[in-house]
Amino acid sequence: MSGNMNLTLKVWRQKNNKTRGKFVTYNANGISPDMSFLEMLDVVNEDLVRKGEDPIHFDHDCREGICGMCSLHINGRPHGPNQLTTTCQLHMRSFHDGQTIVIEPWRAAAFPVIKDLAVDRTAFDRIQQAGGYVNVNTGGVPDANSIPIPKAVSDEAFESATCIGCGACVAACKNSSAMLFVSAKVSQYALLPQGQTERYSRAQAMVNQMDAEGFGSCTNTGACEAECPVGIKLTNIARLNREYFTAKLFKEEEVH
């Protein structure tokens, strides 16, 4: 064992989408403060496997905070107690010896549990498929420098584009609203000249899909912004509202 922290974990275990889940308590002993949260779970899982018990399933991949695959609702907060941090970048030094940690999956009707802590976030993919792109084919595009874009606009679009699609916004929101996610993508294209041609049909298409997936409405609590691991701002949501209402009230574009 490589550390001296002993923790009690209460972990949501659920075999699949058709069965009911429950909390199971585990002891995580000998945890080093230098471990990441997921490495702590690795240690617990190795013990479980040695005992012949099914390890705790959770989604993760890059473990450097960019792929957006890790999730986990830790002690009441998505991605745990730290700000601007994904679960994979959360380290055990943010906890103390003897602490009890409750680990739950993202909770939303649109994110059904697949197993234990892993949820199905393909709703996000479908929203993007509804309109999160510029309709250009490969080839036949103008030179990259043919359209100058003011640095401030480009930087703002970049800020919106940094969304990693993890779903913490939905998990944090008391209404399970996906507005921050949708607005980040709509904003990126609404700001850039490349996105102008389909600006209003895009906002409508993506909102339609968002609603169809069963996410809740935004009540502007700001929880999403506070919990977003990459700092996507609420101004994006205001922009989405603007884009959508402008589209609905003043434009006649159809949704593709």
């Binding site: 792109y133 510029v134 250009v136 490969t138 080839g139 595009v141 103008p142 990259a144 359209i147 100058p148 874009i149 003011p150 640095k151 480009s154 930087d155 679009a157 970049f158 584009a161 990126q188 294209y189 850039l192 490349q194 996105g195």
Partner: peptide
């Protein structure tokens, strides 16, 4: 291609 897709490169 990437710029046409709306990739926000540094400017």
């Amino acid at each position: 291609q990437c710029v046409a897709q709306g990739v926000p490169f540094a400017r």
